[in-house]
Structure formats: C-alpha cells, structure tokens
C-alpha cells in the first residue's frame, strides 16, 4: 500500500471515529435531559463524558482523554450514582418544573450556550478560527501538561487547589455537625427516658 493510500485510510478512520463520537455526545446529552429516571440520566452523562474523551483523543491529547475518563467518567460520576441509588432512584418521581426563578435561570443559561454555539459557527464560517499549527512530540504529554501547570498557569492551578481544599473542609464540617446533632439527640432521648 502506498503512503498516500495509508493516509487516506487513516483519514477516513479519523472521520468515522469523529462522527461516531460526536453522535454519541449529542445523543447521550439529549438522553441526560429527557430520561425521567435519574439513574438512567446519570448513566447517559457517563456516556457523554466518555465520548468527550474520544474527542480529546482525536485532538492528540491522550493524557487529557485518560484523565477525563479517570476523573469525570470514573470518580465523579460514581458519586452521582451513589447518591441516586442511596435516595431510591427508580421509585422517585422525576423532577418536574421547580420554582419560577429556577426555570428562568435555566432558560437564561440555555440561551447563553445557544449564543455561544451560534458565535462559534459564525466564526468558523467566517474563517477566523482557522489556525494551523505543527504539533511537536511533547504536545499533550504528562510532563508538558505538568510544566504548563507549574509555569504559565500557576495562579489558576493554585486557586483550583484552594477551591478543592475549601470543599474538603466543608465536607468535614458538615459531617462533624451531623454527628454532633446525632449525639445531642441520643442525649435528649436518654434524658427523656429518665423523666
């Protein structure tokens, strides 16, 4: 097989994978918001995050793709499923409507995303998104990402770590508060029995 033919086969394969990933991404995205069972919605969200990972892979960032699967499709979504299974899942009535300001806020958020998409399509049509760059060997490798985190994007990296720390401390505070009120309840119960 000549080199040209190999590249052509490779290109067709890339296109096929891209079409499949994008179709899965949109399809599962729709499933997330249309399923009435929250467990099914969460599963669809896992599929959505997984197909995003495939898109990262096509952009030759293997490490980001693996991290996407490991962190988002793996660790984060396990928590979603845990909570849904914990609260009953299947037996629950689906969430319908909500307060007026909830509905208004979601409409505004949806509109913002729509504008975003339209602007992107417009820019692509206008040709202003056409940047060509040669990717070198280190692009997307763990060491290169680590270097960028600790040099160019140090501030964002540190701010993120503080935000995560606050979340962890918040979790501990909430947990210890729940334990304390349990102990108080037990003490009150014991006191009631004595009376």
């Amino acid at each position: 097989m000549s080199l040209l033919a190999v590249t052509a086969v490779g290109n067709v394969l890339v296109w096929a994978v891209w079409v499949l990933a994008v179709a899965t991404c949109i399809g599962t995205g729709l499933l997330v918001v249309t399923r009435t069972n929250p467990f099914h919605s969460a599963l669809a969200l896992i599929g959505n995050l997984g197909s995003l990972a495939v898109l990262y892979l096509l952009l030759s960032s293997e490490f980001v793709a693996a991290a996407q699967v490991l962190v988002y499709a793996g660790a984060v979504m396990v928590m979603f499923l845990f909570v849904i299974a914990y609260l009953g899942g299947k037996a629950d009535a689906p969430w319908i409507g909500g307060r007026t300001w909830h509905q208004a806020a979601s409409a505004v958020a949806g509109l913002a995303i729509l504008v975003n998409v339209l602007v992107a399509i417009g820019m692509a049509a206008g040709g202003s998104l056409k940047h060509e760059a040669q990717l070198d060997q280190v692009f997307g490798s763990p060491s290169e990402i680590g270097r960028l985190f600790l040099t160019d994007h140090l501030l964002a990296f540190e701010v993120t770590s503080i935000v995560l720390l606050i979340a962890a401390v918040g979790g501990v505070v909430l947990g210890s508060h729940a334990r304390r009120s349990e102990a108080e309840d037990a003490a009150a119960l014991a006191a009631g029995e004595q009376v």
Binding site: E62, A66, V69, L70, A73, G74, V78, L81, A85, G89
Partner: peptide
C-alpha cells in the same frame, strides 16, 4: 506512553459494572 493511567481509568470504569448490577 501513559499505560499506567490507562489501567486506573479502566479500573474506575469497571466499578460501574458492580453498581449498575446491584441497582
């Protein structure tokens, strides 16, 4: 080049089999 991360990513997806089966 990132085979170790790949193993952990697969492991974190493997959990779903157990959770989905149980649920």
């Amino acid at each position: 080049p990132i085979s170790l991360v790949l193993i952990f990513a697969l492991g974190s997806l493997g959990v779903y089999g157990f959770i989905i089966g149980g649920w």
